[in-house]
Design a protein around this nucleic acid. Sequence first.
DNA 1: CGCTAGGTTGAAAGCGTTTTCAATGCAGCA
DNA 2: TGCTGCATTGAAAACGCTTTCAACCTAGCG
Lengths: 342, 342
Amino acid sequence: MKTSIEDVARRAQVSISTVSRVINRRELVNERTRRRVESAIAELGYRPNMFARGLMLQKSDMLGLVLPDIHGEFYSEIIRGAHARARETGYHLVVSSSDGADDTQRLLADLTRRAIIDGLAIFLTERTPALLEAIDQARIPCAILDANLEQQRYDAVTIDHRAGALALMRHLVDDCGARRIVFIGGPAGNADTIARREAYEDVIRTELTWRPDDVYHLDYQYETAYPFALERAQSWAGPGHAVFAANDEMASGVVDAAAALGLRVPHDLAVVGFDDIRIARMTRPPLTTVRVPMFGMGAAAIELLSQRVAEPQRPPVRILLTPELIVRRSSGAPLDAETLSR
Amino acid sequence: MKTSIEDVARRAQVSISTVSRVINRRELVNERTRRRVESAIAELGYRPNMFARGLMLQKSDMLGLVLPDIHGEFYSEIIRGAHARARETGYHLVVSSSDGADDTQRLLADLTRRAIIDGLAIFLTERTPALLEAIDQARIPCAILDANLEQQRYDAVTIDHRAGALALMRHLVDDCGARRIVFIGGPAGNADTIARREAYEDVIRTELTWRPDDVYHLDYQYETAYPFALERAQSWAGPGHAVFAANDEMASGVVDAAAALGLRVPHDLAVVGFDDIRIARMTRPPLTTVRVPMFGMGAAAIELLSQRVAEPQRPPVRILLTPELIVRRSSGAPLDAETLSR
DNA sequence: CGCTAGGTTGAAAGCGTTTTCAATGCAGCA
DNA sequence: TGCTGCATTGAAAACGCTTTCAACCTAGCG
């Protein structure tokens, strides 16, 4: 049988008020009484009922995290970051992933109605009106991840994809002496791909020669990039020639294809990727890439949320995270000792 | 201001009992009344307070999942599986990861006391008495992942690592005609490595020649395996020779090193891995490996938990999951068309 | 000695649901 | 007409906690 605060009170010969105080504000109760209550608690193995407690406090110490997908290193890093910060701030984390925009909406509804959470961090990949509506319907604090929402109504964490891509282009041009750069993006409509391609174009148009045929759009997959590069890498190769793939998987496919064709990376063809996932260190040579701070993103979202729970009325805050250029050997820049160890 | 069931009742001119019935057992209320209540709910944007509801029902529809670490594809697959099943069964998932056995204990205590969950799935890598004690202390249903607990007190999900390794060895010997097989394990004390090495030894001792020098223990990392193999792959190579690495990362390092040495995989040296993580398809040639059903493991744990919540008194159930042999080109077996598409 | 302030405690009022139990009304039936 | 039974509804009792408010006691002070 469950023991309640009343059982403890009876056993310790005090009122339930006192037991409650021992649990929550121990400084308010006399030391002798406190010890009596504490041993009663221990003897009975009593644990406060969190439902009742929450009913009074309207607080569960749980935060939600909604991702479009849990697949892959990307999202698991977000979870890691979110979880780490959540634990630091005394929260537990309810993780959920959806399957397309419609499903996100359902999930949001379900989470905000049926789950007992104090706030919700939402990773948005699409921005349908219905989705925004669903977020508005949430009666709890929300933080938005990675979507450049025009409206400033919510706390948000965004990655500066453009700055990352720019750093990578600068590296290719300035440090590696690239004269021709082939761009391999993900789907043409993909927001990240767009940001990266824009940076690419900016640099190409102002400093090199714009060649429309050097821009391709694949699907972010190794399996697609490998045969694709096998067909073309020969024609991409040359002194000062490079490939900028919009993610590490495709870059890895290009590196492997080049090797299969007998090309030397980076000597005959430099290759750079994006994201800095695990495999970036597992190509030969290791990939120069841009590290997208997914861990930091998850952590920042939880941080914002916990701050908002503490101070519901403050104006929305936006955090902009900048990716970091990671120079390895695939780009052909001179490397110092410290960098080599990576 | 929060609207409560009472506000709805007033607006719909009924008692709160009726409103509650409309929400939970709609068949018990007259259609006309029901519609009145429903529009009152809609107009007020009413949502039942889950704390109060939980207080009555003693049920939160949340399940916990504790992992030793969220890092890597492995654990994110478990989360995926658990989440998928949780959603199917109407649960939300509280995910948490710990940092060593001591921390697991703290986490368990925190989760079972402060979090509002109906059950807890725990991935155990170590089995200290203190940990088992902590699990006993949990007053909620628990399911254990991947630990061969002697005691049958809990529901459990276990992977048959040995069967997987055996299948892989059979494949090497029977399908690929391997005559000499080098084993590269993780740390010698690692439970998974031990299970895999035992299967290796069984087959070697009964069917091939036992060579103690062909057994190595590294650290599961690509970065270690690559230079290691670079030194030795030449001496491993030969007709009917193979390397069995205890995970795909190390196998990938071996494949890359072999390529760097000008060896042809699988012709000069067959290589197989274990786990079937993403990179298994990204080596040249793709890795033959064993798929460990992490997704299924997470899903099974949640399934057990939800069944136990429904039927607390039933005897503990143990689920044994068998890994699946995935034949790709690195092992040198003749492949059929269907397999090639992987 | 009477008063005051501070330290401790308990009674009771919520918090917002679900559910039991009883009451009501009405149709159908003898 | 008087019953029975069913469908529908409401009153009220939990559920287990936090917190306010008032009461009590004691020590310290004038």
